[in-house]
């Protein structure tokens, strides 16, 4: 079937993808990966961000936002649970890295699984009692959890309280690739690899039992329960996987930033990440990637209006939500396009 409205890039792109054979698909994926991987070399172009260096902006906020949004998307987009405390898992990962990195001889890659494990344990511990709640109640409890983690870190001695932890070690080299402060393109490639891994994991899970269970829970939890889906189990799974991604992002962030403090893990981060997910198109991986890229990049790009940039950010959120309430790349329309194609086949 031919899609006539070529101006509709989303459906047009989806159409090409659906009709392509395996070699074409592999080629498209490889070319896009290489193109994105080359981004740090485009620093001198119109993309460049004033004040902050472009490759640093690509790592944080852009790359980290994409990674965390993908993690949060498992919770909010796939299984439809509103989580306003996602920053807690990011903070747990970052503090694991900071404390283990400064007190033991372990390096970043050895701490990574430990950080992920801690975040996942926190996810299970929070999930078991609270995931019986739904909707706004779940939102407020997770929000409270995020604040509790921040306050505990702020008021404890092992975390050095408000002073934060400094001198966190950088990751060791991977072969010839060195991690440097001035030139962060290796960090960008690592974040990219983590993003690809996450996307791969989500896509695999989506078409299998957990993905179908999440979809059922999101559409109607009671019906899913009646049909024999162990809803609590899969909700905890979804929560824990989201936490794992957040924890991994936290470990890398601490190792990149070399210094962390409680003020980096406020509710604002959770809200910003949620905004990325909803802004881009909730539930749709590519929508989330685009949303996080735009919202991570925009405040730095418009730094020339320095002081008012958050004001503009807020306005953009209001305007986009008013005119595209399903986000930039909504899930529904894409599903519709596929259904239409199948009907016509």
């Amino acid at each position: 079937m031919k899609i006539r409205n070529y101006w509709n890039l989303r459906d047009y792109g989806a159409n090409i993808w659906e009709n392509a054979g395996r070699p074409v698909r592999v080629a498209i994926v490889l070319v896009s990966i290489v193109l994105v991987g080359l981004l740090p070399f485009t620093g001198g172009s119109f993309l460049a961000t004033p004040i902050a260096s472009f490759d640093a902006v690509l790592v944080y906020p852009v790359g980290m936002f994409v990674l965390m949004s993908l993690g949060l998307n498992i919770v909010v987009g796939k299984s439809g649970m509103l989580d306003l405390g996602y920053v807690a898992f990011f903070a747990i990962g970052a503090y694991t890295m900071a404390i283990l990195g400064t007190t033991t001889k372990l390096n970043t890659w050895e701490i990574m699984p430990i950080g992920i494990a801690f975040a996942m344990i926190a996810g299970v511990l929070l999930g078991i009692p609270t995931l019986r709640l739904r909707g706004d109640y779940l939102a407020i409890v997770t929000l409270g959890f995020g604040e509790i983690v921040r306050l505990v870190v702020l008021n404890s001695t092992w975390s050095k309280g408000p002073n934060g932890i400094a001198n966190i070690p950088m990751p060791p080299h991977i072969g010839p690739l060195k991690f440097e402060l001035e030139n962060q393109r290796v960090f960008f490639w690592v974040v990219m690899a983590m993003i690809l891994l996450t996307i791969w994991m989500i896509r695999r899970l989506s078409v299998r039992r957990p993905g179908r269970a999440w979809e059922a829970i999101r559409q109607d939890e009671d019906a899913a329960e009646l049909m024999g889906v162990p809803t609590l189990k899969y909700k905890i799974w979804s929560f824990t996987l989201g936490a794992a991604v957040g924890g991994a992002a936290g470990v890398l962030y601490a190792s990149k930033n070399l210094y962390i403090a409680p003020e980096m893990f406020t509710l604002n981060v959770s809200i910003l990440i949620l905004a990325c997910v909803v802004f881009g198109g909730i539930g749709n991986i590519w929508g989330v990637v685009i949303g996080a890229t735009v919202l991570g990049y925009l405040p730095d790009r418009i730094r020339f209006i320095s002081d008012a940039r958050l004001l503009v950010f807020g306005l953009v959120l209001v305007i986009v939500m008013n005119f595209r309430p399903d986000g930039l790349l909504p899930r529904k329309k894409r599903e519709k396009a596929i259904v239409k194609r199948e009907a016509n086949a």
Partner: peptide, 12 residues
């Protein structure tokens, strides 16, 4: 959720 984000936007 869209309404929530738009409300978050206006509060920013």
């Amino acid at each position: 959720l869209a309404t929530l984000i738009s409300a978050i936007g206006i509060s920013i």
